[in-house]
Design a protein around this nucleic acid. Sequence first.
DNA 1: TATTGTAAGTGTCGTATATACACTACTCCT
DNA 2: AGGAGTAGTGTATATACGACACTTACAATA
Lengths: 228, 228
Amino acid sequence: MYQYEYPHPAVTVDSVVFGLDNEELKILLIRRKLEPFKGAWALPGGFVQMDESLDDAAKRELMEETGVEKLYLEQLATFGKPDRDPRERVITVAYVAIVNLFDHTVKADSDAEEAGWFPVEDPPELAFDHIKILAAALNRLQGKIRYQPLVFEFLPEKFTLSQVQKLYETVLCRPLDKRNFRKKIQGTGMVIPLDEYEMDVSHRAARFYYFDRKAWEEKSGEGFHFSI
Amino acid sequence: MYQYEYPHPAVTVDSVVFGLDNEELKILLIRRKLEPFKGAWALPGGFVQMDESLDDAAKRELMEETGVEKLYLEQLATFGKPDRDPRERVITVAYVAIVNLFDHTVKADSDAEEAGWFPVEDPPELAFDHIKILAAALNRLQGKIRYQPLVFEFLPEKFTLSQVQKLYETVLCRPLDKRNFRKKIQGTGMVIPLDEYEMDVSHRAARFYYFDRKAWEEKSGEGFHFSI
DNA sequence: TATTGTAAGTGTCGTATATACACTACTCCT
DNA sequence: AGGAGTAGTGTATATACGACACTTACAATA
């Protein structure tokens, strides 16, 4: 038992994990095994250990639940209404994560836990206030994707420009003009053409490109905006 | 005494309170009366009560420490490195606040606590990791002021365009062209001229304007960007 | 081997937006 | 009357953005 002079809330981390699955934007959800909300779908997460930072806690929980090590992770916001958990006062630090479903396989159904990918547009009923967290995460993603190169976190190392465009269209929920899009994305100077082309497609093969992370890290230092 | 089956961190809220004092951007700091960091300057804040939301906690602490009710308040980020407080594990939810030092007087030196306004550029040594929180807050302010009308939170109801421009220049740390600035700010349609002019100035009297909050709230709903 | 289906790839022009830049107007003070 | 000090105003150029339609390449099928 742990004793304190004043009451302390519990602190959890919960992550909204985005991934691109079949050209659809999806989120990873876990089915709860315990009360409260037993059987309901919920964001992956858990309690912060006393010796780990918040980022580390988020990483650990995701590692445990998805098996993925390399993912994009960023703190979103902290949710702390007094009654958001019926058991005790629980404050949750929410994260946005992006996993690359091309390069890594996610153990969606792990040992003990049932997990699954759900379309962002119509998720199932979620436990706690997780639907609010999802809304905030989607909002952040849509805002940030326009001036930071987050799209490449979703895509394989080598991708076609059509893939990039479709992803932007999916996230932003609006169509983009092909020529203008290609002008912009190539105008950044960070999306570099390879001498490789698609194979085994029943139409003209698309060229592969890669994202020059080094150039971005240098230029993002001062002033440079990605901006699509 | 309060008992828990698992260890719980303490949770505080700390606010970076910005204000415009003599055309300088300043932050409000409190001198600590207790260990640790006794005597050092720190961000105003305190423990979250079990029956209040995080926003309410931030508001309450600021009300207690500054006496100001009407202020702009927005959650910034949560800081939770395990060793950021030497006593016990303390996770702090940081807020950015803006107080209007024209319309409200802040009880900078209150009963028990010594408080003061310090230039953002060279603050004193701060307790805990508060210098990091300050850096993050300044970053947020500089970013957000360019596409949201935060400036008017600093200024009196009726202001001159020169005041607005000087404030932008102060926050962004760069000079702006007067004519282009005035074109843009008037182009928003939300900064409305009054038929009042400065009095008792030893030069041409400047016209007063006000910010049309209603128009902003309507237009900010969809798509409109303030953008300076 | 000719045809068809499908997605890839490419350029221009008009419009809107951003930037650079310098003088006159007003008020008070000496 | 003139000087000090800040308010206020317009134009021209460069850049960015959005609209828009056809040709190319590949493979499957007739």
